[in-house]
């Protein structure tokens, strides 16, 4: 379980999160939606301890990230996989080294065993025979799949997706959505995704939470999102320029 309690985060004068509360139960898929720049990626980085909140705390499996040592934080991170918006694959490493890096660094496993696990994970994401390629040789969708394979390589309890469909055409985006659902079902992973792609949110979410002005202003099932009379949510899902949501360009 992941609990976010009263998170406040600011960068200089810019207050990004203002007392955000959110709970994610084991095995569920929660999608956080919101405008570009509203703090969705900051929220994910806070969950994994890359950003420390000014106030509030993140609790993962009953362990608060507040005041824990770096070593303890690294141990907790081994339970988490993250898929970055830009995939963030290591350019200088091949696909199998990208996926197997955790095994190389933490367990010093033999190459043969790492290759076996790598192939298994690549099969899971539907991308066989690319283990010797380098990230520069892959398309956007393939990079995203390798990013997902890397995130699930060490059998994490939680997988975080930062804009999983950003920059992909609708067909590839839908395949990535299907893959996220399939992995969640097969591996029983607790999933948190942040996106402004409402189609993707409807498809993969058990629950959708909307982030606005540093807080979660709505939390409900995809059906509840579609039937809500909350004007902020209505404006966002309808994609209308005029409405109560201000800011942006």
């Amino acid at each position: 379980m992941i609990g976010l309690k009263g998170l406040w985060i600011s960068f200089g004068d810019n207050e990004v999160l203002k007392g955000l509360d959110l709970n994610i139960e084991e095995g569920e898929t929660v999608v956080v939606i919101g405008q570009s720049g509203c703090g969705k990626s900051v929220l994910l980085k806070t969950i994994v301890g890359l950003i420390s909140p000014d106030e509030g705390e993140v609790i993962i499996d009953n362990i608060s990230l507040k005041n824990i040592s770096r070593r303890e934080l690294y141990e907790i991170r081994k339970k988490i996989g993250m898929v970055f918006q830009s995939s963030a694959l290591f350019d200088s490493l091949s696909v199998w080294e990208n996926i197997g890096l955790g095994f190389i660094e933490h367990f010093r496993m033999p190459r043969k065993e790492i290759m076996r696990i790598t192939r298994e994970k690549l099969m899971l994401v539907g991308l066989p025979d690319v283990e010797d390629k380098y990230p520069a040789e892959l398309s956007g969708g393939m990079k995203k799949r390798v990013g997902i394979a890397r995130a699930i390589a060490m059998d994490p309890d939680f997988v975080l997706y930062d804009e999983p469909t950003a920059g992909l055409d609708p067909i590839i985006a839908d395949r990535i959505n299907n893959l996220i659902i399939e992995l969640q079902k097969k591996l029983k992973i607790t999933t948190i995704a942040v996106t402004h792609d409402i189609i993707s949110a409807y498809k993969i979410a058990d629950r959708i939470a909307m982030l606005y002005d540093g807080k979660i202003i709505f939390d409900g099932t995809p059906e509840e999102v579609q039937s809500t009379d909350n004007p902020y949510v209505q404006q966002f899902i309808a994609g209308e320029g005029e409405g109560p949501i201000s800011g942006g360009i």
Partner: peptide
């Protein structure tokens, strides 16, 4: 240039999340 590119493309964040200390690696 190498580490700067890794920083801006979130590769260093990815290392951290994999539990790999960028100081050591």
């Amino acid at each position: 240039a190498e580490l700067g590119t890794m920083r801006v493309t979130e590769q260093i964040d990815a290392l951290e999340i994999m539990g790999i200390d960028p100081g050591r690696y």
